[in-house]
Amino acid sequence: MSGLVYLNGDWIAPEAAKVSVFDRGFLFAEGIYEVVPVYHRRPFLAEHHLARLTRSLEAIGIEAPGQAFWLALVDDLIANNPSIESGLVYFQVTRGAESKRNHLPQGPMTPTIFATFTPMQLHWDTPAPAKVTLCDDIRWLRCDIKSVSLLGNQLLKQEAQRRGAIEPLLHRDGRITEGASSNYFAVKQGEIYTAPADHLILAGITRMWVIELAQRLGLKVNEQPFHVAELGELDELFLTSSSREVQPIGQIDDIIVADGRCGKVTQQLIDAFHASKREHIA
């Protein structure tokens, strides 16, 4: 069979998957999610993604299986969806369900575990430089937890769409944090700057990998804040995520970056990222 999802130990068609209306993920957004890219049916950087899943679950006090379980589940998802060559594995784990709605859990619960594998177009080109828009970061202060509570992120994404941008460029009191579903990197005088991995950002696995690739290329990476006041002085700007990989930015509202083209450093990192994918699937 193909096109199956995993829910609490069962492999079923997506339309047959059901959870309790009293699930705490449904009622209180009390859950964690994670996404693992798969290239040519081979998971990419899976151990790092699953370690982040474990950290986030521990941060909100949900007991869940160890990494061996998740790695096996990734393999099973791929096997149960033979028509998908490249895609995204999605995990969601909530605290579970009780018999009625309570603000505080009334006792131990069995976590709800859901997983799916959906197609993603694998690309080898240089994406066209995109526009982003500056927005106040209205989200909560534990952005390092990959929570399913994404209302703030979704409102910001909708505002970016209204402004004709692919993603918001978020800031808190002038300090650039990240995007609604991405991390940002600035290039100035040949050096790379990105927000530090503190509670104000979700430290992306693609972010981590791009930092490593940059260092292999001999580029200096500064994990320190850059600010709204500096945006007009940047030589380049790009964002990273599991789905977009490395995306050059050519415009921030009315500010044109790198003459609207993909900058030299950004292109080096796109090429390095593609090379790492080729090595992975070889």
Rank of each mutant, 00 (worst) to 15 (best):
residue 130 A to V: 14
residue 128 A to C: 05
residue 31 G to R: 08
residue 24 R to V: 10
residue 166 I to M: 12
residue 197 A to C: 04
residue 134 L to F: 08
residue 251 Q to A: 04
residue 235 D to F: 06
residue 89 V to G: 07
residue 251 Q to W: 02
residue 48 H to L: 11
residue 70 W to P: 04
residue 194 T to F: 10
residue 12 I to D: 14
residue 137 D to W: 12
residue 27 L to P: 13
residue 110 T to S: 11
residue 251 Q to P: 03
residue 23 D to Q: 12
residue 108 P to F: 01
residue 57 L to C: 13
residue 22 F to K: 07
residue 73 L to A: 01
residue 240 T to F: 05
residue 277 K to L: 15
residue 190 G to Q: 08
residue 121 Q to D: 14
residue 142 R to I: 00
residue 263 G to Q: 04
residue 173 D to K: 12
residue 252 I to A: 05
residue 126 T to S: 13
residue 36 V to N: 04
residue 216 R to G: 09
residue 188 K to I: 00
residue 243 S to K: 09
residue 280 H to K: 05
residue 136 D to L: 15
residue 2 S to G: 02
residue 246 V to S: 09
residue 215 Q to P: 09
residue 75 D to T: 00
residue 224 Q to S: 06
residue 143 C to D: 02
residue 161 Q to Y: 13
residue 74 V to W: 03
residue 164 G to W: 03
residue 83 S to L: 04
residue 120 M to I: 07
residue 278 R to E: 14
residue 46 A to V: 00
residue 124 W to F: 14
residue 277 K to T: 06
residue 183 N to Q: 03
residue 73 L to Q: 01
residue 107 G to M: 09
residue 115 A to R: 10
residue 41 R to W: 08
residue 16 A to N: 15
residue 1 M to N: 08
residue 269 L to Q: 07
residue 64 A to H: 08
residue 51 A to V: 03
residue 5 V to A: 10
residue 118 T to Y: 10
residue 43 P to H: 00
residue 40 H to I: 00
residue 174 G to W: 08
residue 21 V to S: 10
residue 135 C to S: 11
residue 256 I to A: 08
residue 172 R to F: 06
residue 236 E to Y: 07
residue 41 R to Y: 03
residue 175 R to G: 00
residue 219 L to R: 09
residue 111 P to A: 02
residue 220 K to S: 10
residue 131 K to M: 09
residue 83 S to E: 14
residue 28 F to D: 06
residue 163 R to G: 01
residue 278 R to P: 13
residue 235 D to N: 06
residue 201 I to A: 01
residue 268 Q to H: 11
residue 8 N to P: 14
residue 51 A to G: 02
residue 59 A to L: 09
residue 132 V to M: 12
residue 156 L to V: 04
residue 44 F to W: 13
residue 239 L to Q: 07
residue 49 H to W: 07
residue 51 A to Q: 12
residue 35 V to W: 11
residue 14 P to G: 12
residue 148 V to L: 11
residue 213 L to F: 11
residue 51 A to K: 10
residue 143 C to I: 00
residue 150 L to W: 11
residue 187 V to A: 04
residue 201 I to Y: 09
residue 258 A to E: 07
residue 101 R to I: 15
residue 205 I to F: 03
residue 191 E to Y: 01
residue 81 N to E: 06
residue 81 N to V: 02
residue 79 A to H: 02
residue 15 E to Q: 15
residue 137 D to E: 08
residue 139 R to L: 13
residue 20 S to K: 08
residue 103 H to R: 14
residue 189 Q to F: 06
residue 21 V to L: 15
residue 80 N to L: 02
residue 193 Y to M: 01
residue 60 I to K: 07
residue 248 P to R: 02
residue 134 L to N: 04
residue 128 A to D: 13
residue 281 I to T: 14
residue 189 Q to N: 14
residue 45 L to T: 00
residue 116 T to R: 14
residue 52 R to S: 04
residue 32 I to D: 11
residue 70 W to L: 00
residue 266 T to L: 10
residue 85 E to C: 05
residue 257 V to H: 03
residue 247 Q to E: 08
residue 68 A to R: 04
residue 62 I to S: 10
residue 23 D to R: 12
residue 69 F to N: 02
residue 126 T to L: 10
residue 206 T to C: 12
residue 27 L to G: 09
residue 159 E to I: 07
residue 198 D to H: 00
residue 115 A to W: 13
